[in-house]
Computed example of a mutant assay.
Amino acid sequence: MPLIRNIEFFFPEDGQANSIFYSETRCIASLYSRLLPNFKTDEFKGIMINCVSSFDILDKLDSGLFITFDYKSVITEIDMREFLSLPTDQRKKEYTLKMMQKPLEQVAEELNWDISIFKDIYQKIIALNFENKWVYSNKRSPNRKYSSSIVCEQEVSYIDVYFEIKNRNGEVLGRERIMREPHTDEQHLLNKLGKIEWTHNHKVTFSDLDYKTIYIITFIEKDTPEKLFWKYEQLII
């Protein structure tokens, strides 16, 4: 049986506005999607929140626009002008969460899911201060004393990617931003990322998927954090 893995937004009235809307809501839609438990359904792998300026306009739109293969469709009203005019990314995150909660609870009722799960996710996102951080990959050093991670921080307008090194106690020794992905749909980023390789107990590399760019961290942990030796290199092949 399929699992609900993804939540997306669609604004069928205006293609240009939809492109911006999809991009700027992806941060919170992605975070909400990751916090969902394993909901099994007979046919759906995602939820499509179709947004319209007014329910009155539905008769003027092609009903086929609201059908997405393998996705449970739900319709809600939105003031697109208000959303696009919000002055900060934080306000857009807050607006997105409020906007999606009601239709998601509607889907929960229709599919006989526990609505309290969705209410809990809503509160958890607020507790996280709307920050969408996730680990793409991690790997321990040969001597098992360190771990390296590729950490992604998904925002309204971009996704930042960091190379992060921790010691055995879980303390972050250092982190380096290695790229900024302008497409907020994480799939664009995932299509670019390669893998972590430790070449020494104190040297680790990460490459893009085609091995055209290699990111290298060399470090030596000293007796005090301020004496940490840290060197970052980027090689274009």
Rank of each mutant, 00 (worst) to 15 (best):
N6R: 14
I7L: 12
I7T: 11
E8M: 03
F9Y: 07
F10A: 15
F11H: 03
A17F: 04
S19N: 12
Y22F: 11
S23A: 14
E24R: 10
E24F: 10
E24T: 09
R26A: 15
S30V: 08
P37Q: 09
P37G: 11
D42Y: 09
D42P: 02
G46V: 04
G46W: 05
N50I: 07
S53L: 06
S53I: 07
S54P: 03
L58M: 11
L61M: 11
L65M: 14
I67Q: 15
K72I: 05
V74F: 07
E82I: 09
F83C: 05
L84K: 12
S85Y: 02
L86F: 02
D89M: 00
D89G: 12
Q90P: 00
E94W: 01
Y95L: 06
L97P: 02
K98E: 15
Q101S: 10
L104K: 00
E110Q: 11
E110I: 08
L111C: 02
N112C: 04
N112I: 07
I115N: 08
K119E: 13
D120A: 03
A127W: 03
W134N: 03
Y136C: 05
S137G: 02
R144E: 15
S147A: 15
S148T: 10
E155W: 09
V156P: 12
D160G: 12
I165N: 12
K166G: 08
R168D: 15
N169G: 05
G174F: 05
E176P: 10
K195N: 15
E197K: 06
W198R: 10
H202P: 00
H202A: 05
L209F: 09
L209A: 11
I214T: 15
E221S: 10
P225W: 04
K227D: 14
W230K: 02
K231I: 11
Q234G: 03
I237K: 13
